[in-house]
Design a protein around this nucleic acid. Structure first.
Lengths: 230, 230
DNA sequence: AGATGTGAAAGTTTTCACAGCC
DNA sequence: GGCTGTGAAAACTTTCACATCT
C-alpha cells in the first residue's frame, strides 16, 4: 500500500438474534478488489475513448499490470459480466462498475479546509466528472471566510451544522491541519455525513456508522523513500 | 486500500547464476508493513511531544487501531528494538524507524506540474519536515514558466534534462493532467530520477529500476462511495 | 509481574488450471 | 481456438499463544 486508508475487515459481529448459518454469501468485496475495480473503470474509459468494443481479462490485466485471473475473480465477485470465448463488452462493463462503485448517483460533498490542498481538491476535475459535487466549502480562518471559489462562498466551520440541516451532505473531505482534524471530523459527524475522506495525517476516531478513507501523502512519500534507501 | 500504489511483490526472478539457497532471509518488508511503520513513526512523534519515554506494543497498537502482535511482528522484521518487560524507548524507536524509512537523509525532489495540486504539494508542511526538499518546479504552461514560488522559479518541462544534469533529483512528483503524465514520466526517467510519486490517474509504464508509488484521489473517493452505496 | 520476540495456526488474497461455453 | 468463471492450491498476512528476558 501506499497512501491508503484500509477498511477494517472481518469484524464479524455475531449479532444478538443471529441464526447460526455459515453464510457463504460473503457480502462485501475486499478493499483491494474495490481499488482494482476503480482501475478497471478508468481503463475501460480509456478503451471506450479508443473505440474498443470488447476486451478480454488478459488485455485488461496487461494494461493494469496484474494477472488475468485476478481480473476475472474480481469481476465475478459481482456477477457474470463476460461472455466465454469473447470477453467483456467495454461499455456494458463500464456501466456495471459505475453502478457498483456508486458513480451513477450524485454525491453531495462538503469540503472542510480551504487551504492549498482544499483548493486543489475543489478544482480536481476527475471528482466533478464522477458525481462528486463539492457544494460547500468551510474554513476556520476568518480571513478566508466570505471569499468565493467559482461561485461557492467559503463559510466558517462553525456554520456547518446549520448549513447541513437544510442541505444534506453525504461526504466530508477533510483538508485541514493535523491539529484541528479530530475536532473538525467531530463536527462533520455531528452534521450527519456518512463518509469522510481524510487528508490530515492523524488517526481519526469516528463512530462505526461513518465510513472513513485516509489519503496520507507523507505515508506515500515515505514508502517511496523506503524503497530507495540502498 | 484506498488510494495507493502497491508494490509488485514476489517477483522472484530465479536469476541465471543463482545458487539454489532457500534464503530464509526474506529481504524486503511487505508494503503493508512499511505503511504501518509510517504510522508508528507519526504516533511516536506525538508520544514524544507528550513527553512519553516508553511505550508498549499494546499502547502503540491501540493508538493505531491494530493489534499488539502486529506491531511487534512489524518491528521485529527490522530488529530487536524493545526490551522485554519494559517496552520500546520512544525516542530511540522513532530514530530507528526514521533510518529504515530513509528520513534521516535529504531527498532532492523535482515537482512536475505547477497547477493547484502542484502548489498544494509544494506547500505541504509534512514533506518539508521529513527531508523531502522540492528544489525545482516545472510546468508545460508557458504562462506559468517564470513565475516564482517561495523563491523557486518555475521552469519549462523541456528544461528538466539540462537542470537534472547539474542538479541531481532523487524523486519526481508528478502532478500533471492524465493526458501528459506518461510523457512527463518518460522525461523524468530519462533525467535520472530513482523514484516517482504519481498523482495522475493513469497507469504509468516505467522501467523496473525506477520505483513508483501512486496516489489516486479518484480511487480513494470511489472506494468511499462504494462503501456508502446502500 | 510485565512485555517482547516468534514459531505455529488461522485467515485472507492471489494464482493455477481446467471445465464449460462461445 | 479463444476466453470466462471457478474450485483448489499456493502464497501471503495476521493473530494466537507462549517461551524468554527484565
Amino acid at each position: 500500500m501506499g497512501a491508503s486508508g484500509e477498511e477494517q475487515r472481518g469484524r464479524r459481529d455475531a449479532g444478538a438474534g443471529e441464526r447460526h448459518k455459515p453464510s457463504l454469501h460473503m457480502d462485501r468485496a475486499s478493499s483491494s478488489t474495490v481499488t482494482r475495480l476503480s482501475s478497471y473503470y478508468r481503463l475501460l474509459g480509456e478503451l471506450q475513448a479508443e473505440r474498443v468494443e470488447t476486451v478480454s481479462s488478459g488485455r485488461l490485466a496487461e494494461r493494469g499490470g496484474i494477472t488475468s485471473a485476478q481480473v476475472r475473480k474480481d469481476l465475478s465477485f459481482f456477477g457474470n459480466f463476460g461472455r466465454r470465448g469473447l470477453g467483456y463488452n467495454v461499455a456494458q462493463l463500464r456501466r456495471k462498475i459505475a453502478e457498483i462503485l456508486g458513480l451513477t448517483r450524485r454525491w453531495r460533498v462538503a469540503l472542510l479546509g480551504a487551504g492549498n490542498l482544499g483548493l486543489a481538491l475543489f478544482a480536481y476535475k476527475p471528482f466533478q466528472k464522477q458525481g462528486f459535487c463539492i457544494e460547500a466549502v468551510f474554513d476556520s480562518d476568518p480571513r478566508k471566510v466570505g471569499e468565493k471559489w467559482d461561485g461557492v462562498t467559503i463559510r466558517a466551520i462553525g456554520e456547518l451544522p446549520q448549513v447541513a440541516a437544510t442541505q444534506h451532505f453525504d461526504i466530508a473531505i477533510l483538508a485541514v491541519p493535523e491539529s484541528s482534524a479530530q475536532d473538525v471530523a467531530d463536527v462533520a459527524v455531528a452534521a450527519g455525513v456518512r463518509g469522510i475522506l481524510n487528508f490530515a495525517p492523524v488517526t481519526l476516531t469516528i463512530p462505526d456508522h461513518v465510513a472513513l478513507r485516509e489519503v496520507d501523502l507523507s505515508i506515500a512519500m515515505e514508502s517511496l523513500s523506503y524503497s530507495l534507501v540502498k
